[in-house]
Nucleic acid binder design. Structure first.
Lengths: 367, 367
DNA sequence: TTCGGGTAGGTTAACGTTAACAGAAACGGT
DNA sequence: ACCGTTTCTGTTAACGTTAACCTACCCGAA
């Protein structure tokens, strides 16, 4: 006896069928208040039979919270973002919240739209993992000030009432670079930023700092790959950036002996460009990536990279957010910075005199 | 004069401030009905000053639609899913709909939860891009029958009132395999399924069909990699599956001369396992992947693979869904199957007698 | 002058749920 | 027998928005 019901079943429908008031049904569904065992059974049976589903809109409207959290991500295909979202979900689920994800495609306009959508639909809080932008930050500030709980991950933006989770990429970049320096490298290229825009990228600052502290001069020709408008270019992937950037570096008269790439995808692009040119890794050129994506352990050679505790960052951001949602929304900012860890694999080995000479020979051949 | 307002601003607040009724404010905000130009300006000014944001819950409750679409994805880090979601978003945005994404982590239970969350929050429709499962399909059927518009992508499940978009993976798998056969390969391995479970995977069926049609026997020893419970194993990535599977194949007395991998990640895992063992690609072992993810053009050697029109699938699914939402929800199923395309790159070349002998020699050395 | 139609706005009542309160019955202790 | 407490259920009034209906004015045509 199934009806091809058009309108969804409401509490009132169940109430009528079970000969009680909607309020009683509500109590049964939510399991609060006193309801006689017999009544409860009857109501539950009817609800099941009618295939009842609560109306989250009405419920949210009345209760002034939706038990829903929104997360804004720049790029859905990024394993880093994926891992973050797993951490977030783990925590939210434990507390009965649902996660809805919005994608901004690294576009500030879409960023703002995502914030608005989530705010309009009254998500109880928002986790933001997109890169900072002027318009985005402005809108975010308004939201925070209007009382929406916000938790930021790795976004270069601070607000007294928005929590913040980051990893220490300055140190991460520093240690990656120092690792190469300690292996004997003096000409270390960086792929993935333009010199003008790159200063906002912490890991790049770390690179510069390491060079300076070890008395190496920064050679602008060794810094390649950041197209200013790369983010607007659809389909211009970061591995392409790594490949293109590396090719540029290989054309130099004085080639770098080591590469620090902005992230693992860029590193993999560079890695393949190097192989394609007939040079060997790590003997001819060493390479360090960033993020330690799963694939980094499965390239050949496997990739030395910098790992950040990604899932933990997601978990922490979610915990901060829940603290704000269920506690004092006006409480001062919680902030936590995670440490990164250099993971040494096969793509970096000490630079020996032998390999240097060998490189010179090859260079002549190629030229 | 900013107030640290706790409660969000409502139409009534604006109405009071602008000396009109909430209804008039509603008309201004939504731009329908007659409102005097002066009044409109005044209301808009007040709304802006008070930083008004419509309450999507109340609005949705009253209008019985939220202009929101949910999409359920198995794995957020998958470039294929990412591209799908881009296509979906493109279309939705044109029509003023917002996309919320739920992740099921390839877990049927989470799948059902995602369906429920979206239905409870009254998304106007749901796009499902997760793998079929018993519980998932059951719940989906209930939803569809209760009138929720549903559009499926590549899910092995049919319903008279749910639209369906797929690519012809049977043919894709067939052509990938035939390509290898035409290159002269006779021992072609498949990585990524267990024989028992694999029959549901269309591309694997295509593989079997191609072998049969060309008079090659299917050797069970050449089919590896599908752990029955791989999906429940957290952190067991598909590239790991490719690597492990390949290692198993390399141990065989009679090694395959070509590999067809379930997807590009698996192929990359296999590719690196082969390199690590000292064999060459494609001379010693040829390899074909599936999906044509961006990285496939940047491995070394670049990867021969099967491309499916991913973004188009997303777009079509979204168009079907909107047709159902804005048109007749009971209309018969729309169905569209896209064709796949073999993309030949460097990882496959003709198998020559020379390379066969060479392989034999190497095999002796290794052994 | 009357009438039709466009313009400008207000009034009412829902959408589905639940917080808050209220009434009544049942129970246990003195 | 009486009173306080626990159990069970019902009533009312919101939450914020908008569809539907209604009133009133103004303007030009008949």
């Amino acid at each position: 006896m199934k009806k091809p019901s058009k309108k969804p079943v409401t509490l009132a429908d169940i109430a009528a069928q079970a000969a009680v008031t909607p309020m009683t049904v509500s109590r049964v569904i939510n399991g609060n208040g006193y309801v006689h065992a017999e009544t409860r059974e009857r109501v539950l049976r009817v609800a099941r039979e009618m295939n009842y589903r609560r109306n989250g809109l009405a419920r949210g409207l009345k209760r002034q919270r939706t038990e829903t959290v929104g997360m804004v991500i720049g790029d859905i295909a990024n394993p880093f973002a994926a891992e973050l979202s797993r951490g977030v979900r783990e925590v939210l689920e434990e507390h009965g919240y649902t996660l809805f994800i919005c994608i901004s495609e690294h576009n500030p306009k879409e960023d703002v739209q995502a914030f608005n959508s989530l705010a309009d639909h009254r998500a109880d809080g928002i986790i933001v993992a997109t890169r900072a932008s002027k318009t985005g930050n402005e809108r975010l500030e308004e939201l925070i000030e209007s009382g929406v709980p916000v938790s930021l991950i790795g976004r270069d933006f601070r607000h007294a009432h928005a929590d913040l989770v980051t990893a220490d990429h300055l140190k991460g970049g520093y240690e990656a670079t120092r690792h190469l320096i300690q292996l004997g490298h003096k000409r270390i290229g960086f792929i993935g930023v333009s010199l003008t825009q790159g200063l906002r990228l912490r890991r790049f600052q770390g690179y510069l700092e390491a060079l300076n502290e070890h008395g190496l001069t920064v050679d602008e020709k060794l810094i390649v790959g950041g197209r200013e408008n790369a983010e607007q270019m659809p389909g211009y992937s970061t591995e392409e950036m790594g490949c293109d950037g590396m090719l540029k570096l290989l054309e130099l008269k004085e080639r770098p002996t080591a590469i620090f790439a902005r992230n693992d995808f860029t590193a993999m692009g560079a890695l393949n460009a190097i192989k394609r040119s007939g040079l060997r890794i790590p003997e001819d050129i060493a390479i360090v990536g960033y993020d330690d994506i799963p694939l980094a352990a499965h390239t050949s050679p496997t990739l030395t990279t910098v790992r950040q505790p990604t899932r933990e960052q997601g978990r922490t951001a979610a915990e901060f957010l829940l603290g704000r949602i269920e506690g004092d929304r006006e409480q001062p900012r919680c902030e936590r910075t995670f440490q990164c860890e250099l993971v040494v694999r096969e793509s970096t080995i000490p630079l020996t005199e032998a390999s240097v000479t060998q490189t010179r020979k090859r260079q002549k051949k190629t030229a």
